[in-house]
């Protein structure tokens, strides 16, 4: 079982281009159709869990499946199998990046590329803002107030990211539970 988990998640890691939701269909196909390790319903639970808990979706899915199939050891094997291809490929790419990045041509290509990278991060960010402020397609008042408040804290007082998120959690408890 551990060997099988290892092989399947190495494949998922190797072929899940685009990260996060782009990799979702690949992961789902492997886990619910090819191996029947979980039902579609369980898979959608994993997606929900991923939104509720920290960490990338595919890591969460790997941990969840590993845990269900072979306990804690299974979770560890599946999660690390997922990550190994990333580590090897990124190690190789880093080597080349630092070897060649001072070449004028490479420098110029990277400079132009920066625009696209910022655009892609913006797109990812907007999706997040949308699901946080417009959960049911209409603008939510409490969420918007909290959003503006946190932006204010970050810009005006340069609050640390983790502190800002923790404050948001406490305010969330007050706004969405107590009130």
């Amino acid at each position: 079982m551990l060997g099988k988990l290892f092989i399947v998640f190495i494949q998922v890691g190797l072929f899940s281009f685009g990260g996060g939701y782009a990799a979702l269909p690949i992961i789902q196909n492997q886990l619910t159709n090819v191996h029947r390790w979980m039902t579609t319903l369980e898979f959608s639970d994993v997606v929900t869990l991923s939104q509720m808990t920290p960490g990338p979706l595919s890591i969460n899915a790997a941990t969840f499946v590993g845990m269900k199939q072979a306990g804690l050891l299974g979770a560890i094997v599946a999660t690390y199998a997922l990550v190994i291809p990333s580590m090897i490929l990124c190690g190789i790419m880093s080597y080349f990046y630092y070897k060649y990045r001072d070449l004028t041509l490479v420098k110029k290509v990277l400079r132009v590329l920066r625009g696209s990278v910022v655009a892609l991060i913006l797109m990812g960010g907007l999706q997040l803002v949308q699901s946080a402020l417009f959960p049911n397609m209409s603008l939510e008042l409490k969420e918007s107030i909290l959003f503006v408040g946190i932006v204010f804290l970050l810009v005006k007082f340069k609050v640390d990211s983790i502190l800002a998120i923790s404050i948001a959690g406490v305010l969330g408890y007050i706004l969405f539970y107590l009130i």
Binding site: L128, V148, I150, Y173
Partner: peptide
Amino acid sequence: AILKGMQVGVSALI
């Protein structure tokens, strides 16, 4: 409620 608040916080940060 807490997770919802944190989600809004993260989106403000991004």
